[in-house]
Each structure stands twice: as structure tokens, then as C-alpha cells.
Nucleic acid binder design. Structure first.
Lengths: 236, 236
DNA sequence: CGTATTATTGACTCCATTCAAAGATAGTGG
DNA sequence: CCACTATCTTTGAATGGAGTCAATAATACG
């Protein structure tokens, strides 16, 4: 076990995610300073929590490998999936407001992540001039993602699925993964939860998009055959 | 004109919103430093823009009086209202990600606002230790609000209206306004847009809540008669 | 006072949900 | 390796909640 993950003990300086993660806009020296306070490569199994709703604000978390879901539980115990997180994506900004996490982040498969601890935030912002701006940028990205979800929520079932798939495709591409052939990290039920649909409707709509020749679905595996038309459907 | 607004030329140090606005967590000296770079009290008429989607990131804006709506236009020109802004609330964080505003902020009535210009952000964060943290906190609040909208979007029409009214009531209370008797700054159509409903459904649901004895509606004026039951409806 | 805007109300329609049953797949242990 | 089970997915039929269309009413405003 110990041996298995030894080669994962990289710092920000030689991490292959540096172009899409926090270091993107920083100078070499700034990355070094950042690297010193980053807690790197915690590993989780499926279902384990990165942080829990209600926890004291832990810090800003960067997904290194694998995927996670962002989940909010309402007071009746219903689970609302707010988004999924891909490698290179940051989360934790929800804890900045009241110093407590307002939602949970849960591993969808075996995954690893790095962490910029909350207690180091203030001093780091002062020491490393660019870091505050970079953090704001990522925080802004979180806002944009949430706002996308709000707009998505007003669309028909067909458009919701098309938006979900194209958004995932775009984000995978940005992170250097195949954008036309990938596995969904969510079950039909979880997709339904995320999109405000029932699992049956998700199943039917995937079938429908397949019948139109736009995608090929096999269980959780998706092939996008006609991205252009799929994107056209998004604007209906 | 000039004369009319002269007494509005206050700085952060003697602004009556200091407890709910950006200065909340800052020391006296920090507020002075902040005040030096704040552009205060621009006044807008209904329908005028604080900033436009696509504009270069202008800065962080604090609503001083009146209300505004946060709007995103999709590529077919459909307008999506993302939220409304009350006095003391901050906006503009959507511009932090790509240095361009991803949505527009539009006055819903005569309103005034202050502004922390984008170009002063970096230097201010370094000069005033607490300011980065305060900005993060408000940025976190923006995220929380967006996530609330996402959760709201999955509820029934009745629950959506109850959530909208109680959320508005809570925010008004926090800002020192009457929380049980207030005027809606939105038309039925705009409320429908915000909540993902048609204006007819909004009208019917307001009537329904009135028939239940929970609220009294007279055009845009709302009286909340039974906040407890109204909040109970939110968790259905 | 007349017009434009906003809001209410009713009847009908349709999309997504609900309920129900069956099929497919992955993981487990004998 | 296969049977067994739990989980996930597909598919169909019936139902219902919100949308659509349409007409009327109330209010604001010039």
C-alpha cells in the first residue's frame, strides 16, 4: 500500500495538473511557496468524504485523479447533487462564507486530492501576491458552474441531458481527457438528481439521443457521435 | 441634481451599511484604507445596467439602496434571472473567473451602489490583510445563493414560491428591513423567470398561499401572516 | 380619460412523473 | 466456474402538475 502510492508524492512544482490547477497563473517562485503549504495526495475510496456539510472549513481542495460529487443535504435528509468534480478542478469555496462547509464532497470512485489548508490561506495570500487573484478566479468558476446549473434547471429533459453531456465533454477536453468517449461517473439516479429528473426519464432521454444517432450509450459508457448536433439541441 | 445627492457622498467609515457590507470584519484602519479606493454612490434609474454580461470585469459592487436583478442571457437571447440584490449585498464575483462579467446586473428601481474597482483589488488585498478574507467570504455567499437556487429549482411550484418569499424575508430582516411586510421588486413574469415557472403559475400559487391564510397579496405588496407554516411548506 | 402594462382566471394539453415489471450487470461465495 | 444476490437499467401504461392559449380585469401612467 505504502509503496503503491509513493510515486504520487509530487509537489505542485512537478505536478502534471499545474496548467489547469491553482498554479496556472503563478510564477516559478510563487509555485514553490504554494507547494510548501499544500498537503498533497490524500487517497479516498468510493463513497468516502473529502469533507462533510457542517464541517469546519477545511481548505481549498484540488481533485488530482478520479471524480467526486458535490452534495447538499436539506433538512429532510434529501440529497441534492450540485455538481461533479473532475481532475484539476477545485472545490471548497462553499466553506468560505461561514467557515463551515455548506455541502459535502464525496468520492465517486478511487480518487486522490491535494489541499490548501484553511489556516494557511490568509498568510499565503499576503506572502504570494498572485494567489489571492488565482483563488478568486477559481471561486468565480464555482459561481459560474452553479449559475449554469440554474439555467440548465429551466430546460426540458432532452436539453438537460444534452447540456450535461456537452458540459462534461468540454470539461474533460479542457483537462486533457477524451471528450468524445468517456464513462459517466454517476448512476442514472444520480444524474436524475443532478438534473432534476427521475432516473426513468434520464434512461429514456439517453435512449432518445441514441436513436437520433447523436450518442452511443452502453451502460455508463458514452460515445458522442455528433457533438455539433448535440450542442445545437442545447439551444432549444 | 448635483445638490440632491450631496448628502449621499459618504465613505465606508460612516456608511450605515458597514455592518452588513464589506467592512464588517475589518479594523478601523482597514476600513479607512478600503474607503480610499471605493468609488461610492453611483445612482441608476430602473432598467439601467450596473454592468453588462461580456463587459470587462469592473470590480466588486455593493448595493447601497434600491434593488437590482442579476441576469444571464443565453445565446438565443433568452433572459435568465439568477437572483435579486438587496441593499448591503455584494455582486460582481462572476467576473473574477475570466475577467469578464458572465451576467448583467440591472437596476429594478432607482438605486445606488458603491464599487471596489477591479484594478485596485490586488494591491488592496496585499495592503489590507483582512480584505481578501472578507471578499472570499462574500464570494462564498454568492456561491451559497446560487446553490440555493439550484436546490429550489427541483421543488414544486408551491414550494418554490414559499422558498422565494421566506428567503426574501430572511434577507430583508438581516439587512434591517421589515421581514413580514414588503414590496416585491419583480413582476410576476420576472418571478416566474427566476423560479422556473410561468407567470400564470406564479399568480395562481400566490393566490393559493393567500387562500391558505399564510400571506396577503395585493399586487406587488406582500404581507406574511404565518411565517412558520410558510417555512414548513418549504420542506415538502 | 384612454392606453399600455401587469395580473388574474379558466379550459385544455402535454411532458415528465409515478407505478410496475422485467432485464442486464457486477460482485460474492460455494 | 457457476449460481445467487444486490444493484442498476430499461421499458410500458396511466396519472398529474405545470404549461399553453385565451379572455378579462386591475392598475399605472402619460
Amino acid at each position: 500500500m505504502d509503496r503503491l502510492f509513493k510515486n504520487f508524492q509530487v509537489s505542485c512544482e512537478n505536478c502534471n495538473l499545474d496548467e489547469i490547477c491553482l498554479p496556472r497563473g503563478l510564477s516559478e517562485q510563487e509555485v514553490k511557496d504554494l507547494s510548501d503549504v499544500i498537503k498533497s495526495n490524500s487517497v479516498l475510496q468510493q463513497g468516502e468524504y473529502i469533507y462533510r456539510q457542517g464541517d469546519r472549513f477545511k481548505g481549498i481542495v484540488a481533485v488530482k485523479s478520479g471524480t467526486a460529487k458535490l452534495v447538499s443535504n436539506d433538512n429532510q435528509g434529501n440529497e441534492h447533487i450540485l455538481n461533479i468534480l473532475l481532475p484539476g478542478e477545485l472545490t471548497g469555496f462553499d466553506g468560505l462564507n461561514q467557515n463551515r462547509h455548506r455541502c459535502s464532497a464525496i468520492a465517486l470512485e478511487v480518487m486522490s486530492y491535494c489541499e490548501l489548508p484553511a489556516e494557511k490561506l490568509d498568510s499565503l495570500c499576503q506572502m504570494v501576491p498572485g494567489i489571492a487573484r488565482e483563488l478568486f478566479r477559481h471561486s468565480g468558476e464555482s459561481i459560474n458552474e452553479s449559475q449554469n446549473q440554474v439555467i440548465t434547471s429551466k430546460q426540458s429533459a432532452e436539453v438537460k441531458l444534452a447540456l450535461f453531456l456537452t458540459n462534461l465533454s468540454d470539461r474533460l477536453k479542457k483537462r486533457g481527457f477524451s471528450s468524445l468517449s468517456f464513462d459517466l461517473p454517476l448512476t442514472r439516479e444520480e444524474m436524475g438528481n443532478l438534473l432534476g429528473l427521475t432516473l426513468e426519464t434520464v434512461s429514456r432521454m439517453l435512449k432518445h439521443l441514441q436513436n437520433e444517432g447523436l450518442i452511443t450509450v452502453r451502460r455508463k459508457h458514452i460515445e458522442i457521435n455528433d457533438l455539433k448536433t448535440l450542442k445545437a439541441i442545447c439551444s432549444r
